[in-house]
């Protein structure tokens, strides 16, 4: 089993603690004048997202977490699992609801996502910062009102509801920021 010594510790390194995969967020070395040095690290649990502190004796080793990130294409869901495909090997994997989590509302078939795999099983799914979605439902706006002031709710094909300017019509493709859940712009059809 691969392992890392504390001297290899740095932000981003993925390690196993208490049987869960973690990523190192911060690594601080503390050392009294004469005596044992310690690595004081902040680590984030890759399953729960929770951040904890842990202190290691410098020189200790810790098991590496077999965690990798890969770009995969979202295919479909059967209600229990969300299926993704590796665009190079065409290999398909199913991610459970816990892994997909908040990304569900942005997942559109064919879109590329970053999938974090732990021992080959999807741990988390990250959607791109910006997605393009089509409006399926919204109150008809006032024609000619381009001020955008106030706005109104619009429902998209994935089911997500986002506040959009008053002039947006059903059937329009819009660019949305998934980090803030805010409307960015119309997408010019080419």
């Amino acid at each position: 089993m691969a392992s890392y010594s504390t001297s290899e510790f740095k932000g981003g390194l993925k390690i196993m603690l208490d049987n869960d995969p973690y990523v190192i967020v911060e690594n601080d070395i503390v050392k009294p004048g004469k005596g044992q040095a310690f690595n004081r690290v902040k680590v984030r649990n890759l399953k729960t997202g929770r951040t904890i502190d842990r202190t290691f004796k410098s020189g200790e080793s810790v098991e590496a977490a077999d965690v990798m990130e890969t770009s995969m294409q979202y295919l479909y869901t059967d209600g229990d699992f969300w299926y993704f495909m590796d665009p190079d090997t065409f290999e398909q994997i199913g991610a459970g609801e816990a892994a997909v989590a908040d990304s569900i509302k942005w997942l559109k078939e064919q879109d590329m996502c970053e999938v974090t795999l732990w021992d080959g099983v999807p741990l988390t799914i990250s959607v791109p910062n910006f997605v393009e979605l089509t409006v399926t439902e919204t109150d008809p706006g006032l024609k000619g009102d381009t001020s955008g002031g106030g706005g109104k709710p619009a429902t998209f094909e994935t089911g997500v509801v986002v506040r959009v300017p008053l002039f947006i019509q059903i059937g329009e493709r819009l660019k949305i920021d998934t980090r803030t859940g805010e409307y960015v712009s119309r997408v010019k059809e080419t």
């Binding site: 503390v30 009294p32 005596g35 044992q36 310690f38 200790e60």
Partner: peptide
């Protein structure tokens, strides 16, 4: 509230007394 890599709470811990004093010195006192 210091979480050590070795949670052994008796003589089985790999942290001897001087190491624990060093932990307390660097984490709590400094």
């Amino acid at each position: 509230d210091i979480h050590l890599s070795d949670t052994g709470t008796d003589e089985t811990s790999t942290y001897n007394k001087d190491m624990l004093l060093a932990v307390i010195l660097t984490h709590v006192i400094e």
